[in-house]
């Protein structure tokens, strides 16, 4: 590879007391790719996201973004550099309507600097921009979905709202923490093209998923975590063929199902 990786994770270790949540995990993320991270429950996937985005401090190791160390910086500074994340447990502002939820990230320094998603460096009226972004993500303007209170929105819309909050910052990297979980098949079917479109627009994505079939369809590369350690890294086919992965997922029906389909 000639180009340097966009994001480098070097020997990252995170302990909680004596428990190793992450043990010397290393990973390179290249510009424009979709990297999938899978692993059984408790294997450290979300901890890794928290470590990259500054929500947790690393015990050891470092994270580099465009060759510069970002580990140790405050979470909002890392987000300001363009590394955004969604939360596994959705965190909308429940007391506000959906479009006002987006006004908040659009108020952030990065959004003002970059003009927001597709803003071209100039940020228009925040209410208008937020409704435009929401419409792109499938909030039907005609049926007034963007005006509904976040507390009244179903899960599918809340997941999109999480993604919209990231997009409002015009990010370089989006880390999606289980955006497919809890969605119906048809909702996922409408999310997949969205993810693919984001990739075509040049956004690099890390996707943490339990829905392996959908993940294997969109991801260019897969990393497998197990008990905080990196088990392997490779294409979907390589991961599916790997004995160690099968062992880690032993009994998991979905893997076998996926493998049968493959």
């Amino acid at each position: 590879m000639s180009t340097a990786p966009l994001l480098q994770i070097n020997q990252v270790t995170k302990t909680f007391g004596g428990v190793f949540a992450l043990n010397e995990v290393s990973l390179d993320l290249h510009e424009g790719e979709i990297l999938g991270i899978i692993g059984p429950n408790g294997s450290g996937k979300t901890t890794l996201v928290n470590c990259i985005t500054g929500f947790l401090e690393l015990t050891a190791g470092e994270v580099l973004f465009r060759g510069k160390v970002i580990s140790g910086k405050a979470a909002h500074k890392i987000a300001d550099m363009g590394i955004t994340r969604t939360f596994q447990i959705m965190r909308p502002y429940y007391s506000l309507p959906a479009y006002k939820n987006l006004v908040i990230p659009l108020f952030a320094p990065r959004a003002r600097r970059t003009g927001g998603w597709r803003g071209g460096g100039k940020l228009g009226d925040r209410n208008t921009v937020s409704i435009d972004i929401l419409e792109e993500l499938g909030f039907e303007r005609e049926s007034f979905v963007p005006y509904k209170m976040a507390s009244n929105l179903p899960t599918g819309y809340l997941k999109r709202l999480e993604l919209a909050r990231c997009l409002a910052l015009n990010p370089e990297i989006i880390i999606c923490d289980e955006v497919f979980s809890g969605l119906s098949m048809s909702e996922i079917a409408s999310m997949v093209p969205l993810i693919e479109r984001l990739q075509m627009e040049g956004i690099t994505l890390i996707m943490i998923e339990h829905r392996l079939r959908e993940l294997f369809r969109v991801a260019n590369r897969i990393m497998v975590l197990n008990f905080g350690e990196k088990l392997m890294e490779g294409t979907a086919e390589e991961v599916m063929a790997d004995e160690k992965v099968k062992e880690a997922y032993f009994g998991s029906e979905e893997v076998e199902e996926v493998m049968e389909h493959a």
Binding site: F55, K77, K100, P105
Partner: peptide, 24 residues
Amino acid sequence: QDLGLVLRAVKDNDQAVRASGMSI
């Protein structure tokens, strides 16, 4: 107003505000 909305967001959900690149 927008500044007030951010303040309300800090109350509602400070983690999401941090994730949006703003210092709580």
